[in-house]
Design a binder for these strands. Structure first.
Lengths: 244, 244
DNA sequence: CGTCAGGTTGACGCGGGTCAAAATGAGTGG
DNA sequence: CCACTCATTTTGACCCGCGTCAACCTGACG
């Protein structure tokens, strides 16, 4: 077992939705085999690779992406401290996409065999982690909605609102904003826009007095109006205590 | 227990990827409480509704969709006979989207308490169904790639290729095509295009001699070229026997 | 033979892509 | 502390894929 302060973010995330006993927490802590660091822009899991362990992000920002032969890239989800970024490899064993860091990252490595043992001993945790992977799928669906039906500024607005709530859960955001040290190219790959147009949309959001992205920080100027612009409905994040 | 011939499609889908014993099959059959029919274009699960049962599609076509206040709608996945369309409600309990039929449908109702009992008795099936929900998430990611990075014709090409493989698994497609009784409006809601532009893209696919959609049937004229156009990579469907 | 859902086509405009260049800023070595 | 490099941001000019609007066509069905 490896002790690590940032692991608390993961428990904050779990406890946001479900009750977790001290014994269950200990069981999860016992699954961590080691802690690693990755530099920025490092692909740490490649599509198709056979996996025997999952990666729990402790600190930093990572993403999942897919690309096409012509070089176009789509980020399908962003991940932050506390996220079990490839828990889905526990059942899939091979992934259909790449995992890459967008900043320097610290991660915990969790072998699948330890998860097997954990879930055999405490089946409730299996259902709870299944739930977590279903929230990731819900995020994918919301992004599909954005990519298919929202305009450029609306997509960015929706993204900033989503990250705000997700980061608050793990104590990485306050009511007025949060750190987001991504490049505009990264944001473009999230929203399906070009860098140039992403830049223009950011300017519009700034000029309309809604939100401001500067030196790696998102600062809300009018959160209510931003949510309205994005037609933001946080239901898909499944925040708060859950039934069952 | 309710006997139903079309339930075999579901077992075909499971056996495509995993070994399934006769006992496991019987256990699953035992979870079906009743069979229902829905007419075309019927919303049968609404977002936010508290759910105590899941729906297994036996026959027909259904979809998941989300919409915005301004009326724009995005279909996030299509479902066919054999698909456990809202298995994710087993862990989520409330969905973030609507479920709607696109043709007349027959469905099997599976109470969550029966799934609890099944998974308690045969934990392997829990992991197997978790896997299935992860394939749905992989489909979402591929659609994100389409919506964000592919052009109109490419999105349609990718969609036709995906459905081809998925329908072959349950015996609803042959090498040259398959029945797809959807309107162009439905296809538009899948691809994030307008009906008008969907129509133009279909014409282009037809005129380029790639694929042809006519009277509810998809007929491939040059499948290889179509896959090339879409840059289609079927890995994300996780077809064939899986490790683990 | 009237009605209506759905398919098809044309004219036109806009959101966002493309290309190119300049501005800014963080690091790095002298 | 300056010179230089390289990544990133920003802006302008131009263009195209796709949206919008509107009309017309087709086929199923009563």
């Amino acid at each position: 077992m490896v002790e690590h302060a940032h692991l608390d973010r993961h428990f904050s995330k779990l406890r946001e939705r479900h009750v977790l006993s001290a014994e269950e927490e200990a069981g999860i802590r016992g699954c961590v085999q080691e802690v690693r660091s990755y530099r920025r822009n490092q692909v740490f899991i490649r599509r198709g690779q056979l996996l025997g362990e999952s990666t729990l992000l402790l600190d930093g920002i990572a993403c999942r992406y897919k690309d096409l032969r012509n070089g176009k890239r789509q980020i399908s989800e962003l991940h932050f401290g506390g996220d079990f970024v490839d828990l889905h490899s526990y059942t899939l064993k091979r992934l259909d996409h790449e995992l890459m860091t967008l900043t320097r990252c610290e991660v915990a490595i969790v072998p699948h065999v330890k998860l097997d043992a954990l879930f055999a001993a405490q089946p409730r945790l299996a259902k709870l982690y299944w739930f977590q992977t279903m929230v990731d799928a819900a995020v994918h669906r919301e992004w599909e909605l954005s990519l298919g039906q929202r305009s450029g500024v609306e997509r960015l607005a929706q993204l900033f609102c989503e990250l705000h709530l997700r980061l608050q859960v793990v104590g990485l955001a306050d009511p007025n904003g949060y750190k987001l040290p991504l490049t505009q190219t990264d944001l473009a790959d999230c929203t399906g826009l070009t860098v140039v147009h992403t830049n223009r949309c950011l300017r519009e959001l700034r000029e309309r007095g809604l939100v401001l992205l500067n030196s790696g920080k998102v600062i809300f100027e009018d959160l209510e109006a931003l949510r309205c612009l994005a037609d933001f409905n946080p239901d898909y994040l499944y925040l708060g205590p859950q039934p069952g």
